[in-house]
Simulated scan of single mutants.
Amino acid sequence: MSNSQRGSVRFRNVRKDFGSFTAIHDLDLEIEPGTLVTLLGPSGCGKTTTLRMLAGLETPSAGTIEIGGHDVTRLPANERDVAMVFQSYALFPHMSVLDNVAYGLEAGGQSKAEARENAHAGLALVGLEGYGARLPAELSGGQQQRVAVARALVLEPQVLLLDEPLSNLDARLRRRVRTEIRELQQRLGFTAVYVTHDQEEALAVSDRIVVMESGLVAQEGPPRELYEEPASEFIADFMGEANVLACEVLDIAEGRATVQVGGLRHTLPTRKAARPGPAKLAVRANAIRLEAGGDASLPGRIQSSAYLGDHVEYEVELASGTIFVVDNATTDPLPPATDVSIGFRDRGIALITA
């Protein structure tokens, strides 16, 4: 295996059936070495099944899986050069933290002394030097998660697999631990495949995001591209709750489209696939400007408002339906029943082409 291939992953036309139900449809996906790729999607989309096939815990019904350029499709889990961090951490409660980290090394044939030396180094990697004598129950949830990561990393796998690794942590701790995982991955340069249903988490940690829907890849690409250029209504809604509005594309020139929503015209960057005619516009909640009264080229009426400290959330009724708006102007919130004019900001708006 060449160094350039180590840590690479390739799914070639992989299908997974459970009886008459097809969970994964002809998955063709390539993961470059040294990158963190997140499989993202709602429950039942196939992301965890994909991860389990990569780990060797499920066998594809068709197609091949390669790790480091080698076909591992029929290899059992213990013969694949991967390590998995589970949602539940799966630490042995009766073993010390050091013994938990050393367990896989000893099972792989290292002497006890060598395994413990490497386990100490693994704990230092994740900032837990000096915690080796403690039991898992004596650690916080975030510390237990780091032990699980250390236990996987000391095996020096080609690919680290993380299955909803932060779901058992509170919101503040999730932010801290996801930053630690990302910094560790970038510092050590290992390949990681990360599964989550949390869009914010995926945006924060990933080099690339693969959004899955009903066993298919709905869209893949860098986080910014998926957020700012959703290819479909599903992606626009899933990646940050965009308002999807019917529009008319009036003109396309030099990579920009002029669209009309009601009486409002707006110009925005567009993809090559766009063409004049009826279309849909994905508008983020914070990309909408509200003005009491105004010229009302796109009129609306506030149904409800909620003050949340650093911003105000509004539900605004348009002729075409209700939209959700987030406004950072908190000094004088607009009360319900206020007639408003809708405007769009320069960013946070995308033309849906599929």
Rank of each mutant, 00 (worst) to 15 (best):
G141R: 05
A119W: 07
Q158K: 09
V154H: 04
E156H: 13
L166R: 01
Q143P: 11
V147L: 08
S111I: 14
P157V: 06
G127C: 03
V147I: 10
Y131D: 02
Q145S: 07
R174N: 01
L161T: 12
R172F: 09
A133K: 10
V154Y: 02
R146F: 07
N168R: 05
D170C: 13
R146L: 02
A113R: 15
N168G: 11
K112T: 10
V149P: 12
Q158E: 15
L155E: 01
L160E: 03
G130F: 06
R174Y: 06
G109Y: 10
L162C: 09
L128C: 02
L155Q: 15
G122E: 05
G109L: 09
L166K: 02
S167W: 11
V159A: 02
V159E: 00
G130I: 09
A150C: 03
A171C: 10
V149A: 02
P165W: 06
A150T: 03
G130T: 13
A133Y: 04
N118Y: 01
E164W: 09
E138W: 11
A152Y: 00
H120R: 14
L139V: 11
G109P: 10
R146V: 06
Q145Y: 06
V154E: 00
G142Q: 06
P165A: 12
L128Y: 03
E138P: 03
L123A: 08
Q158N: 09
V154R: 02
V154A: 07
Q145K: 13
A121H: 08
E164R: 12
L139P: 09
E114F: 05
Q144M: 08
E117D: 12
A137E: 10
Q144W: 01
G127Q: 10
R174D: 01
S167P: 07
A150D: 03
D170I: 08
K112G: 09
D170R: 09
L161E: 04
L169Y: 04
G142C: 12
H120Q: 07
R175A: 08
L166F: 02
K112I: 09
S167M: 10
L125K: 08
G122V: 13
L125G: 01
G132I: 03
A115I: 10
Q145N: 04
G130P: 14
A148C: 06
R134D: 06
E164L: 11
L155S: 08
N168Y: 05
A119L: 12
Q110C: 06
R151F: 03
E164V: 10
L125Y: 01
A150W: 00
N118V: 03
Q145H: 05
A124N: 11
L162M: 15
G132P: 15
E156Q: 14
A137M: 09
E117S: 11
L153Y: 03
A152K: 00
N118Q: 15
E164T: 14
L166M: 14
D170W: 11
L162W: 02
Q144N: 04
E129G: 13
H120A: 07
A121Y: 00
N118T: 11
R172W: 07
Q145E: 06
L139M: 07
S167G: 15
G109W: 05
E129D: 13
E138N: 14
E138I: 01
G127S: 05
G127P: 08
E156Y: 02
